[in-house]
Simulated scan of single mutants.
Amino acid sequence: MSLDTFIAGLPKAELHLHIEGSLEPELMFELARRNGVAIPYDSVEAVRAAYDFSNLQDFLDIYYAGAAVLLTRQDFEDLAFAYFQRAAADNVRHAEIFFDPQTHTDRGVPFGAVVEGLIAGMDRAKAELEVSSGLILSFLRHLTEEEAFATLEMARPWLHHFIGVGLDSSEMGHPPSKFQRVFAAARDLGLKLCAHAGEEGPPAYVHEALDLLKIDRMDHGNRSMEDEALIARLAAEQMTLTVCPLSNLKLCVVDDLRHHPVPEMLRRGLHVTLNSDDPAYFGGYVNENYRQLAEAVGLTREQIVQMARNSFEGSFLPNEAKAGYLAELDAYVR
């Protein structure tokens, strides 16, 4: 069996996926027509051509423009289910997806329309595709902590739908410490905590996420590799890192996949997982991230299995559900 074929059938979880970032150009056009929204592109090809950016902020600008077509509960259900169909095709068995409520509520879209649409898509995925999932409410870090608190308050009627909160958007100049109080409030509500840190931001941001936000899972974390004490700590604590290779390449976090830190992370005992981040924009869903990284750095079958195992172990699933998926993984490998 070729390595590509092995990856294709490997049961895995995806832990770092922004649902708005799975908005493919075809669906963007369909929703723009359905909702009578003008978008600054005249064809699917023009949208794809625009998906050429050199840094995080360039990407975010087009990402927020694309989100403008998402207006109704049905739009969010369609968005979610389209992602889950692609995830199921990659044998993703469980996905924990981020959504950015502020991207939508700031445009006047009701919070309930967003959540209820996403949950409907997730329920369909469970029923029709046998893919389980969880929903993570992400705060936009370029906005204020007061606005994050307002979003958490707005979310209260739907809290039972969330497994955790996250922190995303422009990293530079917006350290995790800015959100220390709102993360403490989310923890008090029983939510799991994760945060983007060390993608473009320095190792100091990773320290803040661990020490001040007290996160349960680290999103990205690449620049942890610049700090020996941090590497040792992450390994000792078995902190799960949700690494996104094609995203890192597209946003110039790495200049070449052959220079990606994943092999060294694994060698140093870090709990690495592979994920697609914003796959419509970054050129591939989760299996493509496994395949291209494997080819670029020469991943072994054992390393690939380890990262798939890490993805279930690092999920926020109950232990019984984790055990079930890990048994499925072991059976596949045998």
Rank of each mutant, 00 (worst) to 15 (best):
M1C: 02
I7R: 10
G9M: 07
L15F: 13
G21R: 12
G21P: 10
L27H: 05
M28C: 14
S43V: 09
Y51E: 13
D52S: 15
L60S: 07
L60Q: 03
I62A: 01
V69G: 11
V69H: 10
L70K: 02
R73S: 08
R73A: 03
D75V: 06
D75G: 02
F81L: 15
A82P: 02
Q85E: 14
A87M: 06
A88Q: 14
A88D: 09
F99V: 02
G112V: 11
G112Y: 01
L118H: 02
R124G: 01
L129Q: 05
S133D: 11
L135S: 10
T144Q: 00
E146M: 01
A148V: 07
A150R: 13
L152C: 03
H161E: 13
F162L: 04
G164D: 06
V165P: 11
L167N: 09
S169K: 00
P175Q: 02
Q180T: 13
R181Y: 09
F183K: 03
A184V: 00
D188A: 15
D188K: 10
L191Q: 07
K192L: 10
E200V: 13
E200K: 03
P202R: 01
P203T: 01
A204D: 14
Y205C: 12
V206I: 14
L212Q: 14
D219W: 01
R223N: 15
M225T: 08
L230Y: 01
N248R: 03
V254K: 01
R258C: 05
R268M: 11
L270A: 06
H271L: 09
N275L: 05
N275R: 04
A280S: 15
A280Q: 05
V286T: 15
Q303A: 13
R309D: 08
N310F: 05
F316W: 13
A327W: 04
E328C: 07
E328R: 11
L329K: 08
R334I: 05
